[in-house]
Design a protein around this nucleic acid. Structure first.
Lengths: 348, 348
DNA sequence: CGAGATCTGTGTAACGATACACAACAGGTG
DNA sequence: CACCTGTTGTGTATCGTTACACAGATCTCG
């Protein structure tokens, strides 16, 4: 920059202003600076130096407990990130996906991210990444996730929503089952009975599970009767595989509540292959009201992950102020033909 | 850092080494530093300062000519980004999505991104963002896009692949049509005849179009007979809407070659609704071999955008060296039941 | 016509860290 | 015991900007 200043016959500050606040310099001076810069091949202010001096990075950090590619493998994450990205674009701020591998050693990397705040994808209660983020002292918002002193949480009331959708799924059922997200980072794929579940490290999974239990017990059932199929990841293929296992059991389920539309659509496919009638012999519910859910006629929980992404980003960038307590987003159950609507209506 | 050094009774350099190269200091010194840092609430080295001094940012930039949310709205972009993210995670480097709105003024923002290199999503030939990226002097790789002096391009031979898939789509057809990506940033949604196309600013769209023309003319047809439906964005809903328009014409097409599986799946839906038999009355082809294409029995071009993402990221991070000329990825046509396979075989 | 407001240009002092070179000391070795 | 090697700790210089305060020139307006 000093060289450009010399070549242009002006001071460094004039050069600096020519880039960062063009209205602060005369058109002539600006022209001289541009010419000198072009001559010398000066690429403009160095981002790191600018960021150091200004005290802000011009980017929002996004953190997952999972390995980084998860952000693009899970459709729910993509919907959420679209909302985050929307705000970033509007504020002319970058979106930095902090590199994570899903192993423990990532903590240090969080600290190395040049960002002005963090949005944290829902993770386990004890994820060390949360401590690392908190240690930076930067504003951070957690999606639907574990609560951490001082950090706002955005999300819906998963337990209540789960109870509401499960009421539709389980009405008139005798052998209910659940297609679940992972319980923790270790146990990834299995079939369990409701009683044998043990500790569930992911708060979202835990809350939805609790809601499903609420619904079933309030219909007069026992926790032990609920079967739970844990899918290793969100995705129709996983839902299909686990549903096939469920349907191959001696006493196949007659109702499946899934924690996402993708898993539920997998269940629909498995039912079709096994020639099981939906909803007559098997009621199925999803979660999220994706386009595919609408096309498939799936009863589901409508929530806008995109809107929640927007909210998280605004909070993390200080463009909105936090509400007292959690930031509860709206949700509602959408009844479609994958559940025995009339039966459910009769029961009430 | 100076404060921490004083509190710990060591020099600043010892503190610095304690964070960046723990093996360089004795365990005792490291412990003293940790203790002092915890005491003072020192959050660790400032990323911008570190980045300024070290001369690297620890992040890879991703640039789209479109508005930023496009990265999560287009399934193809998501697949590609998953590959990019994979490399970033492995190299412990961040992935910074550079904010763009799709308008002209974004150029300055590219320069403000603290990154070590750029991966550029396919864009128009004259996108000013390309100049801005080139001006930074940082390594940059363009996906399938316009070629720019010095910047490597990664992609498949779109023209050849388009000719190959269109041969399958158009075999035995009399009224061929194309479901296209946008032609340029202005004209977004329309039905055109092959002749009236004018300049196509997106190289990918142009090359595929040329390939489609190659195929049709080599079957003895004329360019003017080819109809082209320009979809405003990649997505099944757009493909469906435009296909409906095509099928509602006086002389509906009997073959549709789409530039993506998503568009093609929209065409399949439109055909179903209009009760048009596929492939008997209407052959349909896609592009990309997504899971949905396999499920729908769609004839398509298999290419791995994820692998191309990996390649781009490695090149941009200097983890692989460029080949001479373009970096051509592999592709092949997968024949499924959406085209008249036997007819096409007979023709040969 | 003079007081005040506005515009434009300048010098200095940080922002917070690390590369490098060197010093001090420990231990191993012939 | 001199010599070499490896380990650990330390100062200094520097990375490239921009905030701030101030000075001079020009403009505005009663």
């Amino acid at each position: 920059m000093a060289q450009v200043a010399r070549a242009a016959g002006v001071s460094v500050m004039t050069v600096s202003y020519a880039y960062s606040r063009p209205d602060r310099v005369s058109p002539e001076a600006a022209a001289k600076v541009r010419a000198a810069a072009a001559e010398l091949g000066y690429p403009g202010p160095h981002p790191a130096a600018r960021s150091l001096r200004r005290g802000r990075a011009g980017s929002l950090g996004f953190v997952l407990g999972e390995r980084l590619t998860y952000a693009f493998d899970d459709p729910q994450a993509a919907r959420f990130l679209a909302g985050v990205a929307e705000v970033c674009a509007a504020e002319a701020v970058g979106l930095t996906l902090v590199p994570t591998t899903g192993e423990g050693s990532d903590v240090a990397r969080v600290v190395d991210a040049a960002v002005d705040g963090f949005v944290i994808w829902t993770t386990t209660d004890d994820d060390p990444v949360l401590d690392a983020v908190a240690a930076t002292g930067l504003p951070a918002v957690i999606l639907a996730g574990p609560r951490r002193a001082g950090l706002p949480v955005v999300g819906i009331d998963d337990r209540a929503a789960a109870a509401a959708i499960a009421a539709a799924a389980f009405a008139g059922a005798r052998r209910p089952a659940v297609l679940s997200f992972p319980l923790d980072r270790e146990r990834h794929r299995q079939l369990v009975r409701g009683r044998e579940l043990g500790r569930v490290a992911f708060p979202v999974t835990r809350h939805r599970w609790q809601g499903f239990v609420d619904a079933w017990t309030s219909l007069g059932g026992a926790v032990g009767e609920l079967r739970i199929a844990v899918c290793p990841q969100n995705g129709a293929a996983h839902g299909e595989a686990l549903s096939r296992e469920l349907l191959a059991c001696e006493q196949p389920p007659d109702a499946i509540a899934a924690m996402s539309d993708e898993l539920a659509i997998g269940a629909l496919r498995a039912a079709e292959q096994a020639a099981v009638a939906v909803p007559a012999a098997l009621a199925i519910t999803g979660w999220d009201d994706s386009d595919a859910a609408a096309a498939a006629g799936l009863t589901t929980v409508a929530q806008s992950l995109r809107a929640q992404g927007v909210r998280c980003a605004q909070l993390a960038l200080g463009k909105a102020s936090a509400t007292k307590g959690d930031d509860r987003a709206a949700w509602r159950v959408i009844h479609r033909r994958s559940t025995r609507r009339s039966a459910s209506a009769r029961e009430r």
